[in-house]
């Protein structure tokens, strides 16, 4: 899923300064699963903003609404009736949300309420970690099912580098060295020999480096 972090309240308050009617817009997709942008978080953020407004003696009009997804025009359409009623729409979906809302409702003032951080998964309740960099050419099966592009600080295809110590990355003892894990995993699987291969330079054309990406599926297009 796409994992995000709430923006600090101070930053959100600064964004919506002077805007009376505010809508906090949640999303039932990834951000609901990672507890940062679903219906519940809409309630919390809207309430916190109302407290701030009341405290400042301002009109506390902060409403909440949660769409099925904010990355799909079909659901963004549900805002059609109300978008014009608000002076600010705070989307707490991933970075796609505020853009889709702003594209569909050009007059609306749309603000991001969360920072989109990475594509990852939950290690346990309340802990998420990055797993994918969407490079556009998945190779994890060659590395024991672990991705060196997303999980090595240097995206080395021929690691581990000389900074790996006690199983951790040189950038921090909090960051495991994925190459250490790859070597251990491949060894356990009896496939260490495969790591003797020198991986040639990667084609980054399919990654963000090739420019913004778009995908067209002729079989689905209408």
């Amino acid at each position: 899923m796409i994992v995000g972090d709430s923006k600090p309240l101070e930053e959100i308050l600064e964004m919506i300064k002077g805007r009376d009617k505010v809508l906090v817009l949640g999303c039932r997709g990834c951000v609901t699963v990672c507890n940062v942008g679903g219906e519940k978080e809409v309630g919390i953020l809207a309430t916190a903003l109302r407290i701030a407004r009341k405290k400042a003696g301002q009109p506390p009009t902060v409403d909440g609404m949660t769409l099925e997804r904010q990355c799909d025009p079909e659901y963004i359409e549900e805002l059609a009736e109300v978008a014009g009623d608000y002076d600010a729409i705070i989307s707490i979906a991933c970075g796609v949300g505020p853009q889709f809302v702003a594209e569909r409702y050009p007059e609306a003032a749309v603000f991001p309420g969360i920072n989109t951080t990475f594509i990852g998964g939950a290690l346990e309740h309340g802990v998420w970690a990055e797993r994918c960099q969407s490079c556009g050419n998945c190779l994890v099966h060659n590395f024991g099912g672990l991705c060196p592009i997303a999980r090595c600080s240097k995206s080395l295809m021929n690691g581990p580098c000389g900074g790996s110590a006690k199983g951790n990355c040189e950038i921090s003892p909090e960051v495991p060295c994925v190459w250490h894990q790859i070597v251990e995993k491949m060894e356990k699987m009896g496939r260490l020999q495969e790591l003797e291969k020198v991986w040639p330079n990667k084609n980054w054309l399919t990654s963000r480096d090739g420019g913004p990406r778009k995908r067209v599926r002729e079989d689905l297009k209408q």
């Binding site: 240097k154 080395l156 021929n158 991986w199 330079n201």
Partner: peptide, 24 residues
């Protein structure tokens, strides 16, 4: 060389490249 990660250098906020690794 791959090069030390910039996070503990003089400009930790910079973007790194690592288009190639040291073997490549």
């Amino acid at each position: 060389l791959s090069g030390d990660h910039q996070r503990f250098g003089s400009h930790p906020e910079s973007k790194n490249v690592y288009d190639l690794d040291s073997l490549q």
